[in-house]
């Protein structure tokens, strides 16, 4: 019975083997065959992600990263935090109960690249913003084991001493606009200025930040010092906005609490 069932397959394969036997004499035929066979999967899985609307939820309140936050994100990438931290709460009950509402595609729509991560040596950071104080973040980055003796996270004390390079920020924002993030000309032109203003709320530069990025923007001495804007400022500003770019995930959270 199995044999009968297999017969058509076997016959087909026999035919294929013969064709193959001929084709494998031609390197170009082989190359084209490989390209053909290997292309299909990617096309079917990737292309529709751009055409099916429900792929990325509509989040009208979604905002872009400020220049300081974007600079912090670039530092997060530079230091390889994604090697230990995910930013993707999966649709699993335990993750939702531990970390908060599951991550939506909309939340990372301005993330070039995304930082969903593939390993959790440390906890997920998707809902980190506001969970700790700036001061805690600074102290934790300077020496994680000072606050969490069991931690295996590296210390990043040098961030506190590294002045933030802001001259390249207009170029960065322009590049991000080129790949689809809706920065305005005004935002791009003032990027360096705004980065400094956000980390020095008492300076004259601060006014433009709320004007261009909204009243809700965090204007603080993130690293606790008014002396200069450091990489610590930028990274903490970024960490404090994680999960706060849109309120959509919290709105669709099931409200069956009590």
């Amino acid at each position: 019975m199995l044999k009968d069932l297999l017969k058509p397959f076997a016959r087909f394969f026999n035919f294929q083997a013969r064709t193959h036997y001929k084709a494998e004499r031609h390197s170009i035929a082989l190359a084209l065959g490989i390209i053909g066979a290997a292309s299909i999967g990617g096309i079917v899985e990737i292309a529709p992600l751009f055409t099916i609307d429900s792929t990325v939820e509509a989040a009208p309140d979604m905002r872009v990263y400020t220049p300081l936050e974007q600079a912090g994100r670039d530092i997060y990438i530079r230091e390889g935090c994604y090697a230990c931290h995910s930013q993707m709460i999966r649709t699993l009950r335990d993750e939702v109960e531990r970390y908060g509402p599951y991550s939506l595609a909309a939340e990372s729509q301005y993330d070039h690249p995304m930082l969903w991560g593939s390993k959790r040596t440390g906890p997920d950071l998707a809902r980190l913003g506001g969970k700790y104080s700036d001061d805690w973040q600074v102290r934790h980055l300077i020496d994680p084991r000072d606050l969490v003796p069991e931690s295996v996270m590296p210390s990043y004390a040098f961030l506190q001493d590294a002045p933030l390079e802001t001259d390249s920020l207009p170029g960065r924002l322009a590049a991000l606009r080129a790949v689809g993030v809706p920065y305005t000309d005004d935002q791009i032109a003032n990027a360096s200025h705004d980065a400094i203003g956000q980390a020095m709320p008492d300076s004259t530069a601060a006014g433009g930040v709320t004007e261009r990025y909204g009243e809700a923007t965090n204007l603080r001495l993130f690293d606790g010092s008014n002396a200069r804007v450091t990489e610590m400022d930028a990274l903490v500003a970024y960490l404090q906005i994680l999960g706060q770019l849109t309120q959509l995930p919290y709105e669709i959270e099931p409200k069956a609490e009590e």
Partner: peptide, 20 residues
């Protein structure tokens, strides 16, 4: 995937609904 939608499957499951 179809052009602007996808086959939903007979079970009609959706991961977000499931976790909710």
């Amino acid at each position: 995937p179809l052009l602007t939608t996808y086959t939903k499957g007979l079970l009609g499951v959706d991961q977000q609904e499931q976790v909710e």
